[in-house]
């Protein structure tokens, strides 16, 4: 079904109205709430964006590839659940560079949506 303008466009426009028209009229706790809402909208916009979505898929793929190369420590659970469990049960070597690369890829994909400016620190 074609339903234009799309969600990404709607959210972008709504955020601009919030920041440019409404927030300047507010003070104190109300202003803080408006800025939190703008922040949430930014995350949703990025989450809908194709490039961030590609990074999330890339991170999920990196986890699967990493686990498959190690014979899936627990074949009954998938992805991050399996990875977390394998680390907790010390089935993986925490010093292994490939493990750290996967952890960093996952974290950067999440930050790319939640707070990309943090990656530049």
């Amino acid at each position: 079904m074609i339903n234009q303008p799309n969600n990404h466009d709607l959210l972008m426009e709504a955020r601009q109205v919030l920041l440019n028209s409404l927030t300047p009229e507010l003070t104190g706790a109300r202003k803080y709430e408006a800025l939190m809402i703008a922040n949430v909208m930014s995350m949703a916009i990025r989450e809908l964006g194709q490039s961030e979505q590609a990074k999330v898929e890339e991170a999920d793929h990196a986890v699967s590839t990493f686990l498959e190369a190690r014979s899936k420590p627990n074949p009954n659970v998938e992805g991050e659940v399996s990875l977390a469990e394998a680390i907790r049960k010390r089935r993986l070597d925490g010093r292994e560079p490939a493990l750290r690369d996967v952890l960093r890829t996952l974290t950067e994909a999440r930050l790319g949506i939640n707070n990309p400016s943090y990656l530049k620190r």
Binding site: E33, M36, I37, N39, V40, M43, L103, T107, E108, R110, L111, N114, N115, Y118, L119
Partner: peptide
């Protein structure tokens, strides 16, 4: 909303 956003900050601590 504030508590919800705090949850999305965890990636910063992980980084």
């Amino acid at each position: 909303l504030e508590l919800a956003l705090t949850g999305r900050m965890v990636a910063q601590m992980e980084f």
